[in-house]
Every structure is written in C-alpha cells, then in structure tokens.
Simulated scan of single mutants.
Amino acid sequence: MKLQLIRNATLKLDYAGRTVLIDPYFAPKHSLPSFANLSENPVVELPVSIDEILDGVELVIVSHLHSDHFDDVAKEHLAKDLPIFCQPGDEGEIRAAGFTDVTPLADRATWQGLTLTRREGSHGLGPVVELMGSVMGFTLEAEGEPSIYWAGDTVLYPPVADVIAGTSPDIIVTHSCGARWDGDLIVMDAQETVAVCEASGDAVVVATHMEALDHATISRRDLREAAEARGISATKLRIPVDGEVLILDRPSE
C-alpha cells in the first residue's frame, strides 16, 4: 500500500486498488484563527496542489468536523457525489454541505472490497472532552493488504490500547503533536506515541498531525529524540514530513 501524508491529519491512501482520502484540510496557510494565540492556522502551506491531492480519490473518510479535519475549502473542492464515511451524528451537517453519498460508520461497513470498523477515541480526558466533542478512529482492512489502525484525534487510553492488543494491526497511524487546549492534552504526545510503539509488536507506527497547528507542543524532532531514547528505530516509528509517500507492507513481508 502507499500512504501519503498531505498535512496535519490528511492522508491519501492507495489501498487494495482504491484511493482513499482521510480528513481533508485544504485551508491556505494562516487563513484560519489561532487555537493557542500563537499563530493563525494552519502554520504551513499544503505541500502539493489540491488538484493533485484529489486526483484519483474514490472515497473520503471524515473522522469529525473540527475545522482542521474537514474545512470549507475541502467542502468546496470535493465532488459532491464522492462517497463519504463519517461518525454517527455528523452526517446531517455533511449532507447540508451538498454531499449526497454520506454513510455514518456506526460499527462496520464494506466498500469496494475494503472493510472499515469504527474505533473509539477520546479527544483528551476529563472535562475537556465535552468541549472537544466526539471523535472516531477506524480500522481499515482488505485482502492482501496490511491492516491499518488509524487512531485519530485521541489520547492513549484503555480503548486505544485494547484495539492494539486485540487486533494486532500491521500499521498504526497516530496523531502525535501533543496539542493542548487550555493546558489539557487532546491528542497523543511523544510519551504516549512511544508507549504505542512499545505495545504494538511488529506493527509500524506512523506519526502524523505534526507541525501544522499552533497549539501543538511536540515537533517531529522532539518525537524522534524521545523514541531514540527508548531504543525505538526509525523503521519502527515513521515520522513523515508533509507530502512524503510511504510504501508499507505487512511486517512479515
């Protein structure tokens, strides 16, 4: 399979002969408000053109409706008849934006040979969760392809650990920038990402959602240094830069 990090959480996957776009966030640099009073967002431009990102896309997955995961620019550019999977409760707003093929992923669904399974996530712990709202992760599987656990905007907490232990995914995608809201951690930081690596057996961990927003507290360099301090190799923990393409197979292959 081929995984391209676009920017932030936005990924483009070539998987089992299909092209999937996850959490499209196309806003130009500094066109949206700050989250931490440090800079307008996003803090970097897209690494490639929107036309290039959308080339070949057949399916879109939207994990939740925060502006850095599904923004107005993406809504404008995506074809309105593209199939979209989302978390239950978000389908009405997506349909109201003109999209005609929207399916809430309540549990498990199949599409063109791909199997998607919704996974729980917690956008922080404690009272901040009410402010952040609900989110989802998902598992993606297809015959002949490595299984993917896309954890999404979540901290490391028991349901995430249970998915890793219970499903033994080949690839785990984490959001690892250590973003904070009023001081509360709302996605994984370096320590939690390292813990995922240590708990994940032979899986390859791909850390994303980094160096794109002003409330991030962990850089790619910070994460690499934390991983190296625990003996985690660069082949075990991949930290792609924006626009980078990774070719990933099952660890045994």
Score class of each variant (00 low, 15 high):
residue 5 L to E: 07
residue 6 I to L: 04
residue 6 I to C: 12
residue 7 R to S: 12
residue 8 N to A: 15
residue 10 T to E: 11
residue 11 L to C: 01
residue 12 K to E: 03
residue 12 K to P: 01
residue 14 D to H: 09
residue 17 G to C: 00
residue 18 R to V: 03
residue 19 T to H: 05
residue 21 L to M: 04
residue 22 I to E: 00
residue 22 I to M: 03
residue 24 P to N: 00
residue 27 A to N: 05
residue 29 K to T: 14
residue 33 P to T: 09
residue 38 L to V: 11
residue 42 P to Y: 14
residue 47 P to W: 14
residue 47 P to E: 14
residue 48 V to K: 14
residue 50 I to F: 02
residue 50 I to G: 06
residue 51 D to P: 04
residue 51 D to W: 02
residue 57 V to E: 09
residue 59 L to M: 08
residue 60 V to P: 01
residue 62 V to R: 00
residue 63 S to Y: 01
residue 65 L to G: 08
residue 66 H to G: 07
residue 66 H to T: 12
residue 66 H to A: 12
residue 67 S to F: 12
residue 67 S to T: 12
residue 68 D to S: 13
residue 71 D to I: 06
residue 71 D to E: 13
residue 76 E to V: 05
residue 76 E to G: 09
residue 77 H to P: 01
residue 78 L to R: 00
residue 79 A to G: 07
residue 81 D to A: 14
residue 81 D to F: 05
residue 82 L to I: 15
residue 84 I to V: 13
residue 86 C to Y: 05
residue 86 C to M: 06
residue 88 P to M: 06
residue 89 G to I: 08
residue 90 D to V: 01
residue 91 E to Q: 11
residue 91 E to C: 01
residue 93 E to K: 14
residue 93 E to S: 10
residue 96 A to N: 10
residue 96 A to W: 05
residue 98 G to T: 03
residue 102 V to W: 07
residue 104 P to R: 00
residue 106 A to Q: 09
residue 107 D to W: 09
residue 107 D to Y: 10
residue 107 D to N: 13
residue 108 R to C: 03
residue 109 A to R: 13
residue 113 G to Y: 04
residue 116 L to F: 13
residue 117 T to V: 11
residue 118 R to Y: 05
residue 118 R to T: 05
residue 120 E to Q: 14
residue 122 S to W: 09
residue 127 P to M: 04
residue 128 V to E: 04
residue 128 V to I: 15
residue 128 V to Y: 07
residue 132 M to F: 08
residue 134 S to Y: 02
residue 137 G to W: 01
residue 137 G to F: 02
residue 139 T to R: 08
residue 147 S to R: 11
residue 147 S to G: 08
residue 148 I to W: 10
residue 148 I to Q: 01
residue 149 Y to I: 01
residue 150 W to I: 00
residue 156 L to K: 06
residue 158 P to N: 11
residue 165 A to Y: 12
residue 166 G to Y: 13
residue 168 S to D: 14
residue 169 P to I: 06
residue 170 D to T: 05
residue 171 I to E: 04
residue 172 I to G: 03
residue 175 H to D: 03
residue 176 S to M: 06
residue 176 S to H: 08
residue 177 C to H: 08
residue 178 G to K: 02
residue 180 R to G: 00
residue 181 W to K: 07
residue 183 G to S: 04
residue 184 D to L: 02
residue 184 D to K: 04
residue 185 L to I: 03
residue 185 L to S: 05
residue 185 L to C: 04
residue 186 I to M: 06
residue 186 I to E: 04
residue 187 V to P: 01
residue 188 M to F: 06
residue 188 M to H: 08
residue 191 Q to N: 07
residue 195 A to N: 11
residue 204 V to Q: 12
residue 210 M to L: 14
residue 212 A to C: 15
residue 213 L to T: 11
residue 214 D to Y: 10
residue 215 H to S: 04
residue 216 A to N: 09
residue 216 A to P: 02
residue 218 I to A: 02
residue 219 S to E: 10
residue 220 R to L: 11
residue 222 D to W: 05
residue 223 L to G: 09
residue 224 R to C: 10
residue 226 A to Y: 07
residue 226 A to P: 05
residue 227 A to C: 09
residue 228 E to W: 13
residue 230 R to Q: 13
residue 232 I to D: 10
residue 233 S to C: 10
residue 234 A to D: 15
residue 237 L to W: 08
residue 237 L to M: 09
residue 243 G to T: 12
residue 245 V to L: 10
residue 248 L to I: 14
residue 250 R to G: 01
residue 253 E to T: 05
